[in-house]
Simulated assay, not measured.
Amino acid sequence: MLGFIMVVFTLAGFIKGVIGLGLPAVSMGLLTVFLSPYQAASLLIVPSMLTNFWQLFAEGEVLALLKRFWSLVVGIIVGSIWSIFPTLSDQTFPSEALLGAMLALYGLYGLMGKKLADLSAYERYLSPIVGYLGGALTVATGVIVIPVVPYVQSLQLKRDQLVQTLGLAFTVSTCCLAVFLYQNPVEQALPTHMILMLGLVPALLGMWLGTKIRYRISEERFRRIFFIGVFTLGSYMLLHRIWLF
């Protein structure tokens, strides 16, 4: 079991390093083969938190980023507190399948060469709404991707700006998820601190390797890899949920 956990976090960290997301989605999808969604979400808090910090601060200019996306951050916090969706403690809501389907469709849309509309002119109004929905889905699925990822990409950011902005959203959502899990314990026991830390080194190693690759590829190739990664993650999450049933 311990070896499996280390392999999962190494792979998840590598994917996150290359495309800027994927550690929670990959971790949740693979870990729930042996663990409950609640336990899997608890296990990924420490690795996800530190890799998100790395992603956020690696490019600098964090204050400028916060100044631009503060309403997105507030929306995520509010959504995680007052979610309109059933949360992780409700095992009957097929949130993983829903999120997986949305991710797969978004990845397929991008691979077909369709460009998202430029929504930067409406950023002031959309950021808090998108943030709220992202926060609500975080406590429902353990993952913040839809609608935050396609929205941020629609702002026509450069590669490293996109990755850093996603790092900001992921950092805030992971903090919110940690608070939610602490305040809403369920019958399953949380993993021990030793196991919580077990995924940290593999995740950091995987992310370091993935980041090295990202810096060496062109914007166009990065875009294609990004959408392939999103499509693969979504398809896996959807099929994994169907397989469970």
Results as ranks from 00 to 15, higher is better:
222 F>V: 12
83 S>T: 13
47 P>C: 12
121 A>Q: 13
203 A>G: 06
213 I>E: 02
30 L>Y: 04
105 L>K: 02
162 L>I: 10
181 L>D: 10
103 L>I: 12
72 L>K: 00
53 F>N: 04
93 F>E: 11
158 K>G: 14
130 V>T: 04
121 A>L: 08
117 A>C: 03
49 M>I: 13
121 A>V: 06
22 G>Y: 05
161 Q>W: 12
85 F>E: 13
237 M>K: 09
110 G>K: 10
78 V>N: 09
131 G>K: 15
65 L>D: 01
177 L>S: 00
60 G>N: 02
228 I>H: 06
104 A>G: 01
150 P>A: 05
245 F>W: 07
186 V>S: 05
121 A>N: 10
244 L>S: 06
7 V>L: 15
245 F>A: 00
3 G>V: 14
113 G>I: 08
42 S>T: 08
104 A>V: 09
67 K>V: 03
37 P>N: 07
134 G>S: 11
57 F>T: 13
117 A>R: 00
227 F>H: 14
86 P>M: 15
237 M>P: 03
197 M>G: 03
67 K>H: 04
178 A>R: 05
208 W>D: 01
238 L>P: 02
233 L>N: 03
218 S>R: 14
123 E>Y: 03
64 A>R: 05
144 I>T: 07
116 L>I: 11
161 Q>Y: 01
140 A>M: 09
191 P>K: 06
128 P>N: 03
64 A>N: 04
20 G>P: 08
61 E>Q: 14
54 W>F: 12
101 A>W: 13
245 F>M: 10
114 K>G: 02
237 M>H: 06
168 L>N: 02
237 M>T: 08
19 I>T: 09
168 L>S: 01
5 I>M: 02
